[in-house]
Amino acid sequence: MLDLLPDLCDQYGQDVRWLPLTMLDYGGRKVFYGEVVTLRCFEDNSLVRDIVSEDGTGKVLFIDGHGSCRLALLGDQLAFLAQKNHWEGVVINGAARDVGTLATIDIGVKALAACPLKTEKRQTGDRNVTLTVAHTMVYPGDMLYADLNGILLSQKRLDLSFLEKDSS
């Protein structure tokens, strides 16, 4: 299943919110989905480490870095930690680094850009808050669906069984 989002839009158009933001795909997994955990932080990824250290089964971390690409909020070490703890993916309204290595890790990673500089460590940020990104509300507990077509959000988990019927 390479193109999940077009099928979801066709099936659930009234139930999904499109995130109209062009992001690049850096992770080894190009199609991913899960329950949203939100983090708002600016040029400080201290709380990213704390969150991806937890069990992320069925979850996607959505980091609002306020669109800053001056410092990277995710690199290979945090991505490996997220993969180890079963996170489905990480979406960054900001930058990632170590993008060559990120492409080899089986986790979804979307970000605005690459930046080789690491962040400051001040233990600042707000977890599980409602975000506004590209004029789109992102709520903790939303379901996020991502592929090369972009990102969709839904207030409820969408039934994907119709996709299995289409492929048979």
Rank of each mutant, 00 (worst) to 15 (best):
K84Q: 14
K121V: 10
E54G: 11
L47H: 09
L78I: 00
D50Q: 05
H86Q: 09
V138G: 09
L24S: 15
S154N: 06
D142T: 02
Q14K: 12
N93H: 15
T101P: 01
A79I: 04
G67N: 06
Q123M: 10
G34W: 12
D44V: 04
D147L: 06
T132E: 12
E88A: 13
C41W: 02
I107Q: 10
E35K: 13
N45F: 02
D55T: 08
S168V: 06
A72L: 11
T132K: 09
L144I: 15
L61K: 03
L21T: 00
S154D: 09
D159P: 03
L5S: 15
D3Q: 11
T124K: 10
V52P: 03
I151R: 04
S168I: 04
L148P: 01
E120L: 12
L8F: 13
L47V: 01
K110T: 03
D64P: 03
L158M: 14
V133S: 09
R29Q: 15
Q77H: 14
L8R: 14
M23S: 03
A103K: 12
Q83L: 05
Y26P: 04
D142A: 01
L102H: 10
D98W: 08
Y145D: 13
L21R: 07
D64R: 05
D3V: 07
F80R: 15
T119D: 09
M137A: 11
A113Y: 13
L47M: 05
L152A: 05
M143Y: 15
A79R: 11
R97G: 09
R17F: 08
G108F: 10
Q14T: 12
V99W: 14
I151Y: 02
L117I: 05
G150P: 02
C115R: 08
V133P: 14
G89F: 03
N149Q: 06
H135K: 12
E54R: 12
G13H: 05
D50R: 00
L112E: 01
A79D: 07
K165R: 06
E164A: 14
E164N: 15
G108K: 12
Q14W: 07
D3G: 09
G150C: 06
L102D: 09
I105S: 08
S161C: 07
F162V: 02
L160S: 06
C69D: 08
D50T: 03
E35N: 03
G56L: 00
L78R: 04
P116R: 01
G56W: 11
K84A: 11
Q83C: 07
D159S: 03
S154Q: 11
R157V: 07
D126L: 08
A103D: 11
A111W: 10
D76R: 15
L61W: 00
L148C: 10
Q83M: 06
H86D: 10
R40S: 10
M137N: 07
L131P: 04
C9D: 09
D64H: 05
D7E: 14
I92H: 00
P20W: 04
Y12K: 14
V109H: 12
L21K: 04
A134C: 12
Q123E: 07
R122K: 11
T57Q: 15
R122A: 03
G141E: 00
A79E: 08
M23T: 01
A72S: 15
S53C: 01
A113W: 08
